[in-house]
Every structure is written in C-alpha cells, then in structure tokens.
C-alpha cells in the first residue's frame, strides 16, 4: 500500500461544517479498506479533535498520514492553548462555553475519549500559542 498524506483546514466556530473533516477521513480510510472497528476508533479521535479545534483552537488543520505500519492524525491549531494539560485529560473537565454546552458539547470527554481510542497520543500546548495533538494507531492486519 502506498503512503498517503492529506491535509484539511478547520475553521474556528464553524459549526455548519464541523465534522466534515472527520467524515472525509472516515471515507478515505474506508476506501483504503481498513477494518470497520479500526475506522471507528480513528473516527472518534478525528471528531473529538476536530471539535476541539472548532471550539477552542482558533483556525487549525488536520493531517492524516497512512503508512504501511500506522495511521497518524496530527491536529494543529493557533488557539489559546491548554493551561493545564493534566487537568484537560480529566474526565468531566471542560472549558466549553454555554453555547457549546447547549449543543451537547463540553461534556469533558473529548481528550479522554481520544486517549481511550488511540494507541498513542502526544500533546504539546503553550498558553496563547496553540496546541498540537499527535494521535497514533498501529496497523496489524487491519485490512478487510
């Protein structure tokens, strides 16, 4: 299988198109032929990360990398950054505003869901300078 690399733009506060990047990533992975369980795990991570950029990240981008042994998602944004990363991973903790909460976001489950679904996760964030989230999935006979 050839390596694949695709970049997607994510716009801040664009709730109309929110989720489109994740749907496109899901569609690409289905087209490649990964097994449905792996695609669902990647989709959870893609969606939670995409919504984090939409709600907190300012504008940002997603990078999908597929190589023979792994799938990697990298979300980079220019937003406000995360003050306390350990706290951000605590289930139930959220900085979402009222509008987000009324829409059913801001349950404080985004990063915990990503951690649960991914094989590896690396996060770099500096307050006022944005966040980079690197999410890895190992491939071991995950086709079909």
């Amino acid at each position: 299988m050839p390596d694949l690399e695709r970049r997607f733009t994510i716009r801040a506060n664009d709730f109309v198109n929110a989720g489109e990047v994740s749907l496109e990533i899901q569609s690409i992975l289905k087209h490649i032929g990964f097994n449905p369980a792996l695609i669902r795990r990647i989709s959870v991570c893609a969606y939670e990360s995409e919504m984090n950029v939409v709600m907190h990240g300012g504008d940002g981008e997603a990078l999908l990398k597929v190589s023979p042994n792994s799938v990697t998602l990298v979300f980079t944004d220019q937003g406000k950054g995360i003050k306390d990363i350990e706290l951000a991973f605590k289930p139930g903790y959220s900085t979402a505003n009222l509008k987000h909460r009324e829409m059913g976001f801001g349950a404080g489950m985004g990063l915990p869901n990503i951690k649960e679904s991914a094989d590896s996760i690396e996060i770099h964030s500096e307050e006022g300078h944005g966040t980079t989230l690197n999410i890895g999935f190992e491939l071991e006979g995950d086709f079909g």
């Binding site: 109309v16 989720g19 994740s22 749907l23 989709s43 959870v44």
Partner: peptide, 15 residues
Amino acid sequence: IQSHQNIVAVAVLKE
C-alpha cells in the same frame, strides 16, 4: 433531543 446538524456526523462516524 439534539436537533442541530452536528448529530449527523456523530451518527455517521459511529455507523
């Protein structure tokens, strides 16, 4: 009870 369009992406992504 959520009726905004983001529910569609959630349902499709989770099949």
